[in-house]
Design a protein around this nucleic acid. Structure first.
Lengths: 150, 150
DNA sequence: TATTGTTATACTCTATAACTATA
DNA sequence: TATAGTTATAGAGTATAACAATA
């Protein structure tokens, strides 16, 4: 199979770096969350984070964000509803749809966990110089676009 | 609880960006792999990638890399041995230890999948300017250190 | 008929605990 | 006794397929 290698070697090197760092970051993040909320899985955290930013989203919205099927999102939400962290209602105007949001308790727990992880990450990032920090922030914005545009 | 907020707001902003982009990248990566090798899970890919770079590693080495317990690594390896992608032997000098490596077939499949994902990522990264690309690469190196030093 | 979501089934990931074998 | 690894068990994530309800 022709593997369509780029004309620019820097591009391939950058792609390789992404492929190496993203899993590293995921493992770090999972460990950080576990230290704080051992009962939360990464998918659960992603679900809570999405509903934190998008209150009132439907199950389809959530599934699209998670990159999973509707059934996966459904069982995920069912568990979080069971633990009183997510509220699931029926959309009055579109009765097929769910209206999802965090409960007060779910939001408080999520904010606390996010803040703890951010504090831990900040501690590590604080060793970087202001210039390095600015470049990392800029690079993250670029990667956000790269991952999000499709 | 005191959440030890940083004195530098830029640090916290950067940490927030990391917390947002890392999950995005993970979902993109999973989707990219699925397009190529629908049968591989992310943990399996990480296992293959680690053994690709560290042939002869022990099960403990692998578990440490994955951030999981020994039992998780053991069942993971058992499945990959069953599909003829990983070779598991006994260390002659330390008979408690396993010596893990990719089979010829496993290595070929991994290389092909990695190359496909890299090509797909490269296509997206190719839209960046040389300056942007350099910054992303530099930032990734910094993040590699941030995630890896603990 | 198409869309939204749920449920059943099966397989993988993961942790804990109990176990074996080796050092 | 301590370490390397396996196995049993249980709970969670995931996809596919079959289903119900709504539009």
């Amino acid at each position: 199979m022709e593997t369509a290698t780029s004309i620019r070697p820097e591009v391939d090197a950058c792609a390789s770096a992404v492929l190496e760092v993203v899993p590293l970051g995921t493992r770090w993040l999972r460990a950080a969350i576990r230290r704080r909320q051992p009962s939360w899985s990464l998918p659960q955290l992603h679900t809570l984070g999405f509903l934190r930013r998008n209150p009132g989203a439907s199950l389809s919205d959530l599934a699209g964000h998670l990159g999973t099927g509707l059934s996966t999102a459904s069982t995920l939400v069912t568990r979080l509803v069971g633990t009183r962290q997510v509220d699931r209602r029926e959309d009055p105007s579109e009765r097929r749809k769910s209206v999802l949001s965090l409960t007060t308790e779910g939001q408080a727990q999520f904010d606390a966990a996010l803040e703890a992880s951010r504090a831990e990450l900040s501690e590590r990032l604080s060793h970087l110089s202001p210039e390095q920090l600015a470049r990392v922030s800029e690079a993250l914005a670029l990667l956000h676009g790269v991952f999000g545009e499709g």
